[in-house]
Design a protein around this nucleic acid. Structure first.
Lengths: 204, 204
DNA sequence: GCAAATTAATGATTTATTCAAG
DNA sequence: CTTGAATAAATCATTAATTTGC
């Protein structure tokens, strides 16, 4: 009984036609190309920061949100894998090791260095404040045990600056930080992102 | 032992202990109670809006984020269902319609009923009034300023022991702060959110 | 009585499935 | 039919219970 997709809210049609019908994003050629390109680099699902960056970039080529980017990667990976499996359908059995094109070590959990919105802020010093500050008030830390926080603010806030050239996305993904805090669930529009999933709060 | 969100950076803790604090949220008794209660009302997965509200409320009883709430409901429902199915394993699985049911006291372990825990649990509340509460930071919990953290010393914070009555949280879902609304819309009404994921994110 | 070792719960993430817009 | 979006199932990983040895 999945009535799950009632989706559009009925109440908004205040006389006119619903302006809020479910409509879905349609990637432009350029966006697709870029996305594919990033995907092909095989860095797995981009971290939240990267998604923000990617989104920012793609915004120049048409309307898009972080959710779109996130979903795209999810679907891209899933379908890529599925297609491959079908491809081997008549073949064997035990060989499941073949990664798609995004070989990623399965269990490599060193992620979560949330530096949410860092568009213009400095990530430099975030890791050291008093531990008992949760910027949002609560929220526990979600940080990885192993890599711990430390500052690995290698990310992005910087490489983002002068994009506008085709080389940007290479930076975006190549930029270290393998699997990080992805999963942003569904954010909404406008710059802010996600609501769920991110443990929010700064690490620590 | 719960000791709140302390975190010790490895580089700081010169190789002594790993005072690594918790990485995952642990609901307090109160929070759990409230969550269960809401769950039992059988309204399915709360809408984004409600999640925010619930989170705000639960915030008064310990650190928590919307993500946690969301995840909790996800897990709660999933596991509830699974348990139910196992229950009917050999039977005619005809009806799966029966609500999400409400196993209520599945807490068989509440034998100890934290009769002593209450004073120790305060630790979480030392709260951290973070100076800069993200001017917007991560859309996550810009909680409504109700009681921020700091000691709210609500009566509710201590009625921890004899739980069996909870009435306020029923309100939580019905009123509370109307501020937020833009989260992901689930099915139900959810007031008015924005289904578009499209034309937005013009940030850059 | 404590604390390391083990087990059971359960929070968080990933993957698979489904729905429907174009 | 393709594929973006939403949800549920499966899985992982960490915390709390518990057991065990001292």
């Amino acid at each position: 009984m999945r009535l799950g997709n009632l989706y559009c809210d009925p109440s908004i049609a205040n006389g006119i036609h619903k302006i809020t019908a479910r409509q879905r994003w349609t990637p432009s050629q350029m966006q697709l190309q870029i996305l594919e390109s990033i995907f092909d680099q095989g860095n797995g699902t981009p971290s939240k920061q990267k998604i923000k960056e990617i989104t920012s970039e793609l915004t120049q080529h048409g309307p898009i949100s972080e959710t779109n980017v996130y979903n795209w990667f999810q679907n891209r990976r899933a379908r890529s894998k599925r297609k491959q499996q079908v491809h081997f359908s008549s073949n064997a059995e035990s060989e499941v090791e073949t990664e798609t094109e995004s070989p990623k070590e399965k269990k490599a959990k060193l992620d979560n260095i949330n530096s949410h919105e860092n568009q213009t802020s400095r990530v430099e010093d975030l890791c050291f404040q008093s531990p008992e500050v949760s910027s949002d008030g609560q929220s526990m830390d979600q940080l990885p045990n192993k890599t711990k926080c430390g500052l690995q603010s290698n990310d992005s806030s910087k490489c983002l600056n002068g994009f506008g050239h085709i080389s940007f996305y290479e930076n975006v993904v190549s930029n270290s930080n393998p699997r990080v805090d992805h999963l942003m669930g569904h954010m909404e529009d406008a710059g802010s992102y996600d609501p769920f999933h991110t443990g929010d709060g700064y690490d620590m």
